[in-house]
Design a protein around this nucleic acid. Structure first.
Length: 222
DNA sequence: GCGACAG
DNA sequence: ATCTTGTCGC
């Protein structure tokens, strides 16, 4: 795939890139029914110098592991809420290139459009890979939302300037909800049932759980 | 200026 | 994110 831009940019340039890429997002479903779903996650070494990206591809809706790829790299961008993709993006691109089976859709451990400038990690990487993508974060970034009731599947909207940009979704009864928002080539209403279906027994979608496990495994072995 | 702030 | 022991609950 062709790089959309350089990753070695200043904070000001990164923000400008986000504002430009935002208009290229396709906020609607561009696929029929996904046969595979990938999960992307990154682990950080204790010494604070390296990071390890992992992408796991699972069959959908069976959620059986089909393929996986990992990559190691040096941390080259600080952690700044709102600029997360510039920190984890490069290593995820590297991991993605090692995949033998490309997924029909990708779920990221971060936000999509539920982001101050409408371009979280999932949106950014969805554009980069030109794939439908969903953001599924464990904690909120935007603050305008209510908590859903305790039953699995219930949700509340996340708002940004009066617009619904995401959902606080209860993926497991009585357990802290996750924060779902569409990334690229998908809409919010389509994203919710997909994330729910990807959560079999745990709060976190299976593709993300696999990716998390593999990224940590690589970190310990390297 | 101060607090908030995905991982 | 990562560092960590026990501990409460299904």
């Amino acid at each position: 795939m062709k790089p959309l831009h350089s990753w070695e940019v200043s904070i000001e340039e990164a923000i400008r890139i986000q504002e430009n890429l935002k208009d290229r997002l396709i906020p609607k479903k561009t696929f029929s029914s996904p046969k595979t779903i990938g999960g992307a996650d990154v682990a950080y070494s204790t010494n604070k110098n390296f990071l390890f990206g992992a992408i796991a591809v699972l069959s959908y809706p069976e959620m059986k592991l089909i393929d996986t790829a990992t990559a190691k790299g040096e941390i080259s961008f600080p952690y700044l809420p709102g600029l997360f993709s510039f920190r984890e993006g490069p290593i995820l691109v590297k991991a993605f290139q090692g995949l033998r089976v490309k997924p029909d859709l990708l779920i990221f451990g971060g936000h999509g459009t539920a982001h101050p400038r409408g371009l979280g990690l999932a949106s950014h990487m969805g554009l980069w890979f030109n794939l439908p993508s969903i953001g599924c974060a464990r904690t909120p970034l935007l603050k305008e939302f209510d908590y859903p009731c305790l039953s699995r599947g219930s949700f509340e909207w996340i708002f940004l300037k009066g617009k619904k940009v995401g959902a606080v979704l209860r993926t497991k009864r009585g357990v802290k909800p996750v924060f779902v928002s569409p990334g690229h080539r998908i809409d919010l209403m389509t994203s919710i049932p997909i994330v729910l279906a990807a959560c079999q027994r745990y709060r976190i979608p299976e593709p993300l759980r696999f990716a998390h496990r593999f990224s940590r495994k690589m970190m310990h072995g390297a």
